Simulated scan of single mutants.
Amino acid sequence: MNTECEKDVQPGRIIYPGKLLSPYVNYYLMLTGNYEQSEVVDFYPDGGVGVIINLEGNILLNKKLLGKGVFFDGANSKKVQLELKGKVSLIGIRFKPGTFSLFFDADLSKFHNTFHNLYAIGYMLPKRFFEFLESCITDKQRIIAIETWLAYNLSEPDHNISVVLAALKSISANQYDIELQSLVEEIGVDIRQLQRLFKKQMGMSPKKLVKLLRADVARKMLTNSQTLSCLEITYRCGYYDQAHFNREFKNIYGVTPNRYRRIYTD
């Protein structure tokens, strides 16, 4: 299974999945090295969830100490900080919104803004597989092994998962600006059913997800589109006014859009 491409990021490397898994996996993050000084990696909420395979050393996730093992990063509505210090060998798997249930049967409503061992969702990574990942010499070997493992666990979507995926497709097609009533009419379910399915498979309500995805689009515009003012981004992303944009953005990222732009573009 060949990965599509890769790129270096500070302080690690992102590798994108191969063709089979690209509809479901956003990316793999490889962090390996001896960090003499503390390094902090920010993860922003995108509606997806993650798995962290920590092969060596201790890490801090939002100040929570995690040792060697496999951890589930549930649906987040706030920024997550990963802190590295000392010798570390870590693999992060980031799943696209709504796709985790195709690999593991888990009720994500129980894992909002939390970190747990993977067995908390009813799955234990085979010890031999973990040991094999430890023995791999290169990132490529580890990614091939992980993609084989994920492909083995991949299942066809059942009716409930199909409903959520259809809703996500509609939300994206409407550029994250769609009323809940219009959404349920389009996909043919009632509001309570959709909310229940989103809670279980996304870990959050449809309304919360739309807020996160819209804010994520705005966040990327702030750093990638320097010619656009915050006011232009406000209306392009469907916010009522700049006060509305500032309030929702700060609630998720902890800073105003203007402050975020200064921090990450200076």
Rank of each mutant, 00 (worst) to 15 (best):
R214K: 15
K85R: 14
T3G: 05
F72A: 05
L209R: 15
Y176N: 08
L168N: 10
V88A: 10
D266W: 05
Q37I: 11
F115R: 07
G48Q: 00
L125Y: 00
D177P: 00
I91L: 15
Y152T: 14
V255A: 13
S229N: 10
Q175G: 02
K19S: 09
L197E: 15
S155I: 08
N160A: 11
Y35V: 01
E36R: 03
F132I: 14
N54M: 09
L133N: 04
C237Q: 05
T227K: 10
A218L: 06
R94K: 14
L154I: 02
I53K: 03
F43I: 03
V80N: 09
M124L: 10
P206Q: 12
L66K: 02
L231G: 07
L133F: 03
I52C: 09
G48I: 03
K250L: 10
N26Y: 12
Y16M: 06
H112M: 09
L108H: 06
T256E: 13
R192K: 14
F103W: 00
V80P: 03
T265H: 07
D241V: 10
R219T: 09
F71T: 02
L31D: 01
R259Y: 12
V163P: 00
Y35P: 01
L61V: 15
E6Q: 11
A166G: 03
G12K: 05
S172F: 07
I53Y: 02
Y28N: 01
P17Y: 04
Y119M: 07
I59N: 06
Q226N: 08
G238C: 10
E186F: 08
S89Q: 15
A167H: 08
Y35R: 04
M30H: 11
Y253P: 10
R219H: 07
R247Y: 12
I178N: 12
E131A: 06
T99K: 15
I15D: 05
Y240M: 03
V210I: 15
D46L: 02
H244S: 11
V255Q: 13
A106H: 08
